[in-house]
Design a binder for these strands. Structure first.
Length: 587
RNA sequence: CGGAAUGUCGCCUAGUGGCUAUGGCGCUUGCUUUGGGAGCAAGAUAUCGGAGGUUCGAGUCCUCUCAUUCCGACCA
């Protein structure tokens, strides 16, 4: 490609919206342009990189016997009503009516489509297992797009869907994806860790997320360096301390103006772990069949030294959403905010008790009476409720596996794998006849990789103060060839020779000063740079530099330039191949 | 969806009620230059996001609206 003909231009100054380095350079180098909030165009350079990423993904999916298909972006709402997600997903899914007035949606993922295809194509165990995948546009009307391609509304995603006879089959396809994703990310050059995850709206059981660790990330991840335990904070387990003692008799005491745990501890001269804190939430339950909504008050009882992890609570409740309750809603159940507890309200609210409370004794809790608390409250004696882990993991907490310290980090989710089980096949009647003649629901899995997000994280990982420096596997071209000579013919010949040798070249043939050409080459950051100038030409050579190390210069003889560059390309590619991560899931 | 901020040429930016709206980058033309974002000269490009209002006078003040960004809620 000749730079004189290239559609995009580089920007000397960063547009003000660029809030992180990777985004700034993708804009300045001319990879992407914004159209609206969370809506981007890929320019030629960005599209080339994206195509390379997709190539890596295709190669891997094909190696898992995946078959590429393409499902529609616009879906009739009917299939989404079948699974209930038409009702349970809020404004994030965009809906509209077609000219006949039919309900339509823009697909934000394709479980419904895939299951719909599955039920028409798969009728016998003989057709299983299957794996289909697509690389396709998704639309999610996210309330808060940010950080360039990191969090967008319209994006390209590779999503695959597995179909199996049974759990064992699913386990196998799941494991294959688990290992394959490590290969994909390492081929692209992105360091990732895998974490145990919440399955969120997918509604499955087992799931993992692939995280690129970075301060720009929005997900919070707990890791244990000692044993390797990693989990999304939303589901992270940790080892709690329990304070077991002889149960004493409950006693009411006056605690005027003590509305917080800290006030209470100061007044009574006790530790926070000797209190039981009540957190009041409103949970929304949506009926999958009718779409009817119901709100219920939830009292979450947790020990005073811990905080509620709302995500864990929502999962225990199997609620569609939860939010903090308003004061009037709390009072309506006869509970006094500031002096509230689960005691005496089992008929008015759902009570969830963290095991920290269930396994401790003689905790101080609210008396549900203005200005009073209760000493020595004990679970099961004074109140009951469902016991679960609803506590939020924090930095420095103890790992539940090995008792070492957990560390908190930020990450960007670039991929995920879910075991869906029969959630979708049962809801959508995707059944097959097994060898025993019985009709059984297909066991499914779904697996996603955000293509644009992967480009964004790569740009974040591979940059310096001058610009991008993408690995050769995902860079838009392998070689940037700068001719600084007045004589155009020599440059043209080298360009033509490089192209003929199958090397991907961006040729800077513009009438620009050397400084401009160097600055743009730094910005776009192609892995190998060839510079042809008068000085080196007289010596019969050209200069070669690697973008990853601009301080070092090699002089390549013009006679053997093409072959030498070809070797250099091969060398860089081999480095990536040699560093492919092989990691298996142990279940 | 709550809170905040910002909209001036393709990008960055000046502007604090008063003449024909700054400057830089980029763009066009010519000459010079050609190893790190060149120099000289001449040009073009802005209904100051939109609508309404206050005022003798509005880019500037007010109201509404649209858009974008940030913080939070949310998020595969």
């Amino acid at each position: 490609m000749r730079m004189s003909k290239m559609f995009s231009q580089t920007l000397r100054e960063a547009p003000s919206a660029a809030d992180c380095k990777g985004y700034e350079f993708l804009l300045r180098a001319g990879f992407i342009r914004q159209m609206g909030a969370g809506i981007f165009s890929l320019l030629p350079l960005g599209y080339k990189s994206t195509a390379k990423i997709e190539g890596i993904i295709r190669e891997e999916m094909d190696s898992l016997d995946g078959q590429e298909i393409l499902m529609p972006l616009v879906n009739p709402a009917d299939i989404w009503k079948e699974t209930g997600r038409y009702y349970s997903i809020d404004k994030e899914m965009s809906r509209f009516n077609d000219r006949r007035g039919s309900d339509m949606v823009l697909a934000m993922t394709h479980e419904e489509d895939a299951t719909s295809l599955g039920r028409t194509e798969i009728n016998s165990y003989k057709k299983l297992p299957q794996l289909i995948y697509q690389i396709q546009t998704k639309w999610r009307d996210d309330a808060r797009p940010r950080a360039g391609l990191i969090r967008v509304r319209e994006f390209t995603m590779k999503d695959s869907y597995s179909f199996d006879r049974d759990q064992a089959g699913l386990d196998e396809q799941y494991k294959k994806h688990y290992a394959s994703y490590f290969r994909i990310f390492s081929k692209a050059g992105l360091p990732v860790i895998v974490v145990g995850a919440d399955s969120g709206m997918m509604g499955g059981k087992v799931s993992h997320e692939y995280m690129y660790l970075s301060p720009i990330g929005e997900d919070t991840i707990m890791t244990c360096e000692h044993c390797g335990y990693t989990a999304n904070k939303q589901v992270a387990k940790f080892q709690k301390k329990y304070y077991k003692e002889e149960a004493k008799v409950i006693e009411k005491i006056a605690t005027p103006d003590c509305k917080t745990i800290v006030d209470l501890c100061n007044l009574l001269n006790i530790e926070t772990h000797q209190c039981a804190k009540a957190v009041f939430m409103m949970a929304t339950f949506i009926n999958d069949k009718s779409g009817e909504e119901e709100e219920k008050l939830v009292v979450a009882q947790i020990r005073g030294d811990l905080d509620i992890e709302e995500n864990k609570l929502q999962n225990i409740l199997k609620a569609n959403s939860i939010r903090p309750a308003h004061e009037e809603e709390i009072r309506a159940a006869g509970i006094v905010p500031g002096f509230g507890s689960a005691i005496g309200c089992s008929d008015k609210a759902i009570i969830i008790v963290d095991d920290s409370v269930a396994k401790s004794n003689n905790l101080v809790a609210g008396a549900n009476e203005e200005g009073y608390h209760l000493l020595n409250t004990n679970f099961k004696v004074d109140y009951t409720g469902k016991v679960a882990d609803i506590a939020s993991a924090k930095n420095g907490y103890t790992c539940s596996v090995c008792n070492h310290e957990l560390k908190v980090s930020k990450g960007v989710e670039v991929g995920n794998i879910f075991q869906l089980g029969t959630r979708y096949s049962e809801a959508m009647n995707c059944y097959f006849t097994d060898i025993d003649g019985k009709s059984k629901p297909v066991v499914m899995g779904s697996y996603g990789i955000g293509v644009g997000r992967l480009l964004a994280t790569l740009a974040e990982e591979y940059n310096d103060e001058r610009g991008l420096s993408l690995p050769i596997s995902v860079a838009p071209y392998q070689v940037h060839f700068l001719s600084l000579m007045k004589d155009k013919e020599i440059g043209e010949k080298i360009y033509t020779d490089l192209m003929a040798a199958g090397i991907e070249v961006l040729y800077d043939d513009r009438k620009e000063s050397a400084g401009v050409k160097f600055a743009d080459a730094d910005l776009i950051g192609l892995p190998i740079r060839i510079t042809l100038g008068n000085k080196s030409y007289i010596e019969g050579s050209a200069e070669v530099k690697l973008r990853s190390n601009l301080d070092e210069t090699f002089n390549y003889s013009l006679d053997t330039l093409v072959d030498d560059v070809k070797k250099e390309v091969k060398k860089l590619q081999d480095e990536i191949t040699n560093n492919i991560v092989h990691k298996e899931l142990e279940i």
